[in-house]
Amino acid sequence: MSGGRVSAQDTASPGDEGPAAQPPLPRVLLAAAHVVADPFRTVGDPDAPAAVDWDATLAFRRHLWALGLGVADAMDTAQRGMGLDWAAARELVRRSAAEAKAVGGHIACGVGTDQLAAPARTLSEVVTAYEEQLAVVEDCGAQPVLMASRALAALAAGPDDYAEVYGEMLRQCSGPVVLHWLGPMFDPALTGYWGSTELDAATEAFLAVIAAHPGKVDGVKVSLLDAHREIALRRRLPDGVRCYTGDDLHYPELIDGDDQGFSHALLGAFDPLAPAAAEALRLLGAGDRKGFRALLDSTVELSRHLFRAPTRHYKTGVVLLAWLAGHQSHFTMVGGLHSARSLPHLARAYQLADGLGLFPDPGLARSRMASLLSLHGVNQ
């Protein structure tokens, strides 16, 4: 790293096979990874079955492991509920978990209820859907991340219903899991999660679930984009329960922490920012806190741009940057979501990423961006 840029030696190539031999990172750092569509089979209908390019998808996960990061798979960055159906998500979990085992990579996978074809009528139906997905993840040897459920949000009458469903799931989990609180800016269908639109009341319900099941929660992944609220929640977690920041706008200060603690990370932003994030954490591990903050702070403008409202479409910029960086051969997404952002938005993402030195081959990135602009009638 030099001058706030990631150098070539900081960037793993797409062909790297596993975690590099590096000192342990001082935080648990998970990059929520995107999926690569199969451009010869994918269609624009978001209700059609997802078509995934498995070779390119798994190669990108090897890239993340080679940098020394962990992978959070089958999460919202992988377009769960936005193009990736349960059949494809299940296959993704199985393939990624096997790949993680082969290369010694850390992997956690999302457990949800998105296989329900119709709105759930009872809490038991929600539990059954969770159980099916939990079995897949645990059987593969991945760490489960209990994702927020649209079905539960639509059905629950209040905090007691959340306590019932999560209590049943935590009793069944064979090991500690991560609980994921995804805010409505990422998915409007999750408005009022934990039984209230008042975040103070929702926080109390959330903490009550954790307290009622000691030893069953490894950590909480908080995606509310509110740093002050995350810090307040972090300070109230029981001993041994980690906070994994999901705040793609304020992650440097949250990971850095204060004299009362810090957050680990499970971030979609660390998909495109993986080389910079890994290098920043190594600086922190070496005691260079100033260098850590300088490098990670330099990435915030790009992350905030990618996660600009409507926040749920941040995946489009993530996939664009993966294409420009040479991790895939095309700019196509399952569900046709490569069209979800404007051309000026994508052009600015390219400029910011190039300024950070995130592209292993800047000439390739420049050529590919020029071809995208030309396709839309922009002549340079």
Rank of each mutant, 00 (worst) to 15 (best):
T203N: 09
A232N: 01
A370L: 13
K315S: 15
I210F: 11
D47T: 04
I210W: 00
L146W: 12
G4T: 11
P214W: 15
R94Y: 08
Y162F: 06
F206T: 05
H376I: 10
Q380E: 09
H313D: 08
I107T: 12
A50H: 04
L372V: 01
A8R: 14
G285M: 09
G81H: 07
V35C: 07
D271S: 12
W65H: 04
E230Q: 00
D53K: 14
D85R: 14
Q143T: 15
Y314G: 04
L69F: 11
G246I: 15
S124Q: 08
Q115N: 10
E17R: 14
A32L: 13
A157T: 15
H213F: 12
L152R: 06
H228W: 08
F262R: 01
Q79T: 14
T77C: 09
G246W: 04
L29K: 11
L182G: 07
A78R: 10
L249M: 09
P39D: 04
T113W: 07
P49C: 01
E253K: 03
S149G: 04
A135Q: 09
L295Y: 07
L343T: 05
P275M: 05
D256E: 05
V334I: 15
F292A: 00
L337C: 13
V43K: 07
G81A: 04
R368I: 12
V136F: 08
V334C: 06
L296I: 15
D248G: 02
A87N: 14
G112C: 06
V318R: 01
G167S: 00
A135V: 02
